[in-house]
Design a binder for these strands. Structure first.
Length: 488
DNA sequence: TGAAATGTTGGGGCG
DNA sequence: ACGCCCCAACATTTC
């Protein structure tokens, strides 16, 4: 016979919401009193790929979360410390018998959670980790031989089959009942943590996330297949920042968007990509540091710092690239079509290591997520699992003409080209002198000259990638990953 | 979730 | 009428 567990802790991490929160619900119903905690972890704040926009968005969502908790008579405890030190301390202070949290699949988080669980166990406190932030976890979608997938298409097929065969979607969990009040601590400002961001970020909080979801479903989902590729229009869901921090649950998003229409199916595919890259990172944590494909770990990147800086600033002379890089800096977000274009440009036109671009994205993106960002970069650089073939190289001009035909996107983010006619908006260098004068364009003055010529760089990229073929043609006898789970 | 090079076809101008 | 050339337009191959 077990005594009533009195107090439980819910440790918020990337699940900054009250609604449909698996661990929070379990923590709230397991005991009589629930203490919500968030830990500002210096190990994360000090990382080179932690950026101001994401820190600010995190803090704004913590404010919204704390307000939501306050409305229920509870106070969010925010502490800045090592979670393995502070969680046992808080647990002892409030007399908690258990700490609940939602699973996180990143290498750092997994190691940290092991440390935290050990520290809690040493203090006689239970630790419970729940599945919450993905629709299917790392070992729920497996091949016929019970191994993880490394190719997307068969993974997606199995994912859909499992979803169709599985139990009817459980209704989203209600928020926990009223919570007892406990001690509070103040929330820091970004500047207190050494970050300053003037980016124009999305509105924080669960209500804003649900409003965005509703607008997307009502207005944009039906035409998602076509419009998601047009950066000049608002055709995408805009949910990535909210999903990144769990401000809305992925189950709620999926339930609201699932359907038989082409738009709905295409959007579900994006959610499947999200699960795919998370399970890939779980089973292959080495992708955080190196190419998934061993043959492409020895690419002879040129890594010219001047070219890299021009790319970062959005001053490459290629309008679609510059518009995208400036949108990123101004808003902490970039349209996905443009993420592919600028990644192709960095790796295959500038011949710069994809990891440089990956880190820049992580520093700037409000939705920056290791699994998705790394997966996207390795896909574009052709180094990843199921990546595009290395000889597939985007032409930044034709990509612009194809997906921003009227130049609306370029004009919004590169105002110095605003008066250039549509015909030349994606290749202003080809504009005749009289028309350039009429558009107020002086190449090299009002807008940069191209920093490289695509037609020169493309063959160099092909040579660079092609060179890896001869040097790595040794047949691989044993390609077993050390991280592959042991088969029964 | 490419682009460029190369190959093929067919219409039209022309001697 | 016919062969020849040019060149879009489209298809295939190659990177």
């Amino acid at each position: 016979m077990r005594s009533t567990p009195g107090t439980t802790i819910h440790w918020f991490r990337r699940d900054l919401r009250l609604a449909d929160n698996t661990a929070l619900r379990h923590a709230a119903t397991a005991g009589e009193r629930l203490v919500p905690v968030f830990v500002l972890d210096d190990a994360i704040l000090a990382r080179r790929d932690t950026g101001a926009a994401r820190v600010r968005f995190l803090l704004e969502n913590l404010h919204a979360l704390a307000a939501g908790l306050a409305a229920r008579g509870s106070r969010l405890i925010v502490v800045r410390d090592d979670p393995a030190v502070v969680l046992p301390r808080v647990a002892r202070a409030v007399g908690a018998t258990a700490v609940h949290w939602n699973m996180d699949y990143e290498p750092y988080a997994r190691a940290r959670d092991v440390r935290v669980a050990e520290a809690l166990a040493a203090a006689g406190i239970r630790a419970l980790a729940w599945k919450d932030q993905v629709l299917f976890e790392e070992n729920e979608i497996l091949t016929g031989t019970r191994r993880p997938f490394t190719v997307f298409t068969p993974y997606a097929r199995a994912w859909r089959a499992q979803k169709a065969a599985g139990p009817k979607e459980a209704p989203p969990l209600p928020p926990p009942p009223d919570l007892a009040g406990v001690a509070s601590t103040g929330l820091p400002a970004p500047s207190d943590l050494g970050f300053a961001s003037a980016a124009n970020l999305p509105e924080a909080g669960e209500a804003a996330a649900l409003a965005r979801l509703r607008t997307f479903v009502d207005r944009d989902l039906h035409d998602y297949e076509r419009r998601r590729n047009l950066p000049g229009e608002r055709g995408t869901s805009g949910l990535s920042p909210y999903l990144r921090f769990g401000v809305v649950s992925v189950r709620t998003v999926h339930a609201a968007t699932a359907g038989r229409s082409l738009g709905a199916r295409t959007f579900t595919t994006e959610l499947i990509w999200r699960d795919f890259y998370q399970q890939l990172l779980f089973h292959h944590p080495n992708v955080e540091r190196q190419a998934f494909k061993p043959a492409l770990r020895t690419l002879a990147w040129e890594n010219d710092r001047g070219l890299f800086a021009a790319w970062q600033r959005g001053e490459t002379g290629f309008p679609i690239v510059d518009a995208a890089m400036r949108q990123l800096r101004a808003t902490g977000w970039m349209h996905n079509r443009c993420r592919m274009v600028v990644a192709s440009f960095l790796t295959k036109d500038l011949l710069i290591d994809w990891r440089w671009g990956e880190r820049h994205f992580m520093r700037e993106l409000v939705d920056g997520d290791l699994a998705a960002n790394n997966g996207g970069w390795q896909w574009a650089a052709s180094t990843g699992t199921d990546a595009q073939p290395w000889f597939r190289i985007f032409n930044p001009t034709s990509q612009g003409e194809k997906f921003d035909p009227d130049g609306a996107y370029v004009r919004r983010w590169v105002p110095e080209l605003a008066a250039v006619p549509n015909r030349w908006i994606h290749q202003p260098w080809a504009l005749g002198a009289p028309e350039a004068a009429k558009a107020g364009l002086v190449l090299g003055k009002t807008y940069p000259e191209r920093i490289v010529l695509h037609e020169e760089r493309r063959p160099r990229a092909l040579a660079m990638y092609g060179a890896t073929r001869e040097s790595t043609s040794i047949p691989q006898q044993n390609t077993k990953s050390p991280h592959r789970p042991v088969r029964p």
